[in-house]
Simulated assay, not measured.
Amino acid sequence: MRARDARALIRFLVDVLGFEETVVYGEGTRVDHAELSWPPGGGIMLGSVRDPGGASGGDDRWALQPGSFGAYVVTDAPDELFARASAAGAEITEPPHDTDYGSRDFALRDPEGSRWSFGTYRGEPRRT
């Protein structure tokens, strides 16, 4: 995912939502590559949006617009995470609710405008 202010987005994801910073490469305000781990498993990679006329020369294989990302993240404690995010002033787009497929979910937008949905649904078991 790309961000206008990747360092601020990393702080939000770590401090507000509980991701863990694995590695961040870049100088000053620019983030060339960052990896954040989600404690129950998995993680994300992100970096600063690239300037087409800048040092990268427009050669950005991940030319994504900031705010266009969306993800569903599994958590065993959606109500606690909702309380944490709300207390930090996150923009909540859907308060906690129970779904018809048995999940407890809520959703928010990060400071870049991307949508994050958190819930207890782990998906259907793989077929063997």
Rank of each mutant, 00 (worst) to 15 (best):
R126C: 08
W116G: 12
A107H: 01
P125S: 14
L9A: 02
W116Q: 07
V16F: 02
E124A: 15
M1D: 02
E35K: 08
R50M: 09
G54S: 12
E112L: 10
Q65R: 15
L64K: 09
L13C: 07
G102L: 03
D79V: 04
L17R: 00
R127V: 12
G18A: 07
G67H: 08
D5C: 05
I92T: 07
E112P: 00
L64R: 03
G54L: 04
L46N: 05
R4E: 10
D51H: 05
P52Y: 08
P39V: 05
A83P: 06
E35V: 15
Y121Q: 00
G28H: 08
S117Q: 08
S86R: 15
D32K: 13
A77G: 13
E27D: 15
S117F: 01
Q65W: 13
P96W: 01
A85D: 03
A107C: 01
T120S: 11
A88R: 13
G58F: 04
R61D: 14
E80Q: 15
D98Y: 03
G43I: 06
A3K: 05
R11M: 12
D15A: 14
A90D: 02
G113Y: 10
L13V: 09
R126I: 11
E21Y: 11
A77S: 15
A3P: 09
V14N: 13
G41V: 09
H33C: 06
D79S: 07
V49N: 06
P78I: 09
A87E: 15
E21A: 14
D15S: 13
D79F: 10
T128M: 11
D105E: 12
D105T: 07
I92M: 08
T29M: 00
F118S: 00
R122S: 12
W62G: 03
A34Q: 01
